[in-house]
Design a protein around this nucleic acid. Structure first.
Lengths: 346, 346
DNA sequence: GTGAAAGCGCTAACAT
DNA sequence: ATGTTAGCGCTTTCAC
């Protein structure tokens, strides 16, 4: 490798016998260059393999054409599908992407992260960490100091920030109402961690659906898991004892629902006839569980995609002279996929 | 938001009544600054919320402290776990990360991607796209022109490039030998797409294990899937007809193995007694399949982590005056996890 | 259609 | 311990 110094715009200019500005015009595809000059320059660029320095350009233009993305939990499939949507849309819109992953979901000490992004002149920030407990508290204090658009994913509505999120409440209502419709009256719920906003929303959807059907939800009908199949196993075991007349389960996600299926198989509980089950997420594998699992499908790729579109829009509006636009709250409706686990034979 | 121009190093210097150089020394934690000067400057930095521009610094130092990461298939869990390892280790070592995701696994037209990274002065590149068909062909032509360290993940050994990869062959031998050890003689294999290097390695491991046991592998004992559960379903159906005496299946991944379990359940094939099953990947859910699935565990987080460590090492060596170091080929051994699906009762 | 000058915000190298 | 000078590679503005 060694010290092969890269050609600069000056090198190109020298060889072409023009000024650097003319080269600059060519690499920025500006019209006001004579055709033959342009061609000569392009040829030289090709010859000496000149690559414009995006860094110098960023410094000069005071703009990087990069977004900063903060995520957590990439070892789970949800965050990574979301990220995939983000990455693809950013690419499509011509933005680069800086990736940071929080070591855990509980984001505290936000300032260094923000500083890191800001010192790199990102055009916008995507906050793809789900709302958990108080990890959105800093927003009110900080948001006014950050002169760069931010979009938050998976967050309760707030007046002062822009948000794109799946409608978890709606998904839970879909699932529960479906179980009611097939005649179930005793519908238990395995929730995610109650510190998670998503868990709270799904729980509330379950509750409201029951009440709307004239059934009073009780404490003993719910148990909390932590999203893992392991916790789902324990939660289901617990429900079986606190809620013995249970004839259906709405699980906060598919992994925990999977444990319900396994336990049922071991204990010869007939799914879906004795017990109907609906999950949440609609993992690609859900169709191949035994029996195939009904689930609430959330389009996370779309979530990421929409978030980037909104952010790009905010960046543009910010750069034009118009005053700042209003924060948005964009909601994506999930969809219920019905499979065998909630299709009893009678 | 508006035009609140950010403070620069010059602003700090002016307020502190020193030169920019002194401020520069302070923000870079250099020792040769008087204590009181340093404190005064630090106080001012805090007051006016000065944030050094990483871009200006990169331009000046001709170095960005960023890595470029190229991935594909983030909608699958494997690539994202790998990426998680990469992101965390990069953060730990003080490198930022540019993320690019290929729209599909078949990478062609590599040049724009490389150019994008190089024009941003990345210190190194992580090529986390698995080797598929001819998508590594460009390496020989290009590698000599790229004066930046690159590390490849999941790739066959090559003399001229550095590679970190899971030992897929070894994993497949572990799985197959285990099935032989529990007394199985008719072991089928559902492979991944044969264009994938990983699939080829796993197939070869299965073959060699059989031959070492004196069993001749035949064409009819293998069917090709595409990693998806859906394809696994079809593949297993096919194997049942071409290889009726089959008493065990080694599946190229867990998703396809899941379909084997489902089909067995539907057709009342007793797993593990009639048919034993081993998968590959050891998904977190595998333990909760019915029955729990034996699988080959690959530590993808570690894979990503090691890749970044090696890359950082290469960057350092590259920056010191030593001549370039030899390419490395680092292999990570997977581990067999035995569960019920391959623990017959007799 | 093209060029000259100034500047983006920082650091390296050399003074003092 | 601190300052001066000269860049890093590009773009913007204004002149011609």
């Amino acid at each position: 490798m060694g010290k092969v110094s890269k050609p600069t715009i000056y090198e190109v200019a020298k060889r072409a016998g023009v000024s650097r500005q003319t080269v600059s015009r060519v690499i920025n595809n500006r019209p006001d260059v004579a055709d033959d000059t342009r061609e000569r320059i392009l040829r030289i660029i090709d010859e000496i393999e000149y690559r414009p320095s995006a860094i110098a350009r960023s410094l000069s233009k005071q703009r990087s054409y990069n977004f900063g993305l903060l995520t957590a939990g990439l070892e789970f499939i949800g965050p990574s599908v979301t990220m995939s949507g983000i990455a693809k849309k950013s690419e499509k819109l011509g933005y680069g992407l800086y990736l940071k992953e929080l070591p855990s979901f509980n984001a505290n000490n936000i300032q260094p992260l923000l500083d890191w992004f800001l010192s790199r002149q990102v055009d916008g920030i995507i906050w793809a960490v789900p709302e958990i407990g108080p990890n959105r508290e800093w927003v009110d204090d900080m948001i006014k100091d950050i002169h760069v658009p931010i979009i938050f994913l998976t967050s309760a509505k707030r007046e002062n920030i822009s948000i794109v999120t799946i409608d978890n409440y709606h998904g839970a209502r879909l699932a529960t109402e479906h179980l009611l419709k097939i005649g179930r009256k005793n519908i238990g719920h395995i929730s995610g961690p109650m510190t998670w906003w998503e868990s709270q929303q799904r729980l509330q959807g379950w509750r409201d659906a029951l009440q709307a059907a004239g059934i009073e939800p009780e404490e003993r009908m719910v148990t909390e898991g932590n999203w893992s199949s392991k916790s789902g196993k324990a939660a289901f075991g617990h429900l079986l004892s606190t809620f013995p007349e249970m004839d259906a389960v709405f699980s906060g996600n598919d992994q925990m629902a999977l444990s319900v299926l396994q336990t049922a198989c071991e204990q010869n509980i007939d799914i879906p006839n004795e017990l109907s089950v609906v999950g949440f997420d609609n993992l690609p594998e859900a169709e191949y569980y035994s029996p195939s699992l009904s689930s609430v499908h959330q389009d996370l790729d779309m979530l990421g995609s929409v978030a980037v579109e909104e952010l790009a829009r905010m960046v543009e509006e910010n750069n034009s002279d118009r005053e700042d636009s209003e924060p948005i709250y964009h909601t994506i409706k999930p969809e219920l996929i019905i499979r065998k686990s909630s299709t009893p034979e009678n």
